[in-house]
Design a protein around this nucleic acid. Structure first.
Length: 131
DNA sequence: GCCAACGTTGGC
DNA sequence: GCCAACGTTGGC
């Protein structure tokens, strides 16, 4: 089981909407690196759900429920469902202030919308979200 | 609103 | 194949 970080602008699709929808197709990824990450996903993988632009924080956990499947042209998507919201959001500033998280892909490659997360980084985010 | 980082396009 | 121009993302 692997861990990932996925980004969404809360003005277009916030985590709360995923909770309402119960499940959604994670479509619209148009970057090849992100596409390869989608292809590497498997059901049961866990994703940190990050709000970009507005909020700039990880707000919840989502679970991958399907392998990658074709969307349009060569692009692919996966289906995800909510697991739980975080008690406390973990901000980009918190990532940058943390010795471990400051080396994560979220900080190193800010434009990548689907990024791998190490088990250590994932655990660290959960620890920070507990306050 | 600006800009850095990065990807894509198209002329050569 | 190189590179300048341009577009997009996303933080500040």
């Amino acid at each position: 089981m692997r861990h990932w970080l996925i980004k969404s602008e809360p003005t277009s699709y916030p985590y709360s909407q995923l909770v309402l929808d119960r499940q959604t197709a994670w479509t619209g990824i148009r970057n090849n690196t992100a596409r390869l990450n989608l292809l590497a996903m498997a059901p049961g993988d866990l994703c940190l759900y990050y709000h970009s632009n507005v909020g700039k924080e990880v707000v919840g956990i989502a679970e991958v429920v399907t392998p990658a499947y074709p969307e349009v042209d060569r692009w692919v998507c996966v289906d995800i469902k909510p697991v739980h919201a975080l008690a406390m959001g973990v901000s980009l500033a918190a990532f940058k202030a943390d010795p471990l998280l400051s080396r994560s892909e979220l900080v190193r490659q800010s434009r990548l919308s689907v990024a791998p997360v190490t088990p250590e980084e994932y655990a660290r985010v959960l620890a920070l979200s507990a306050g």
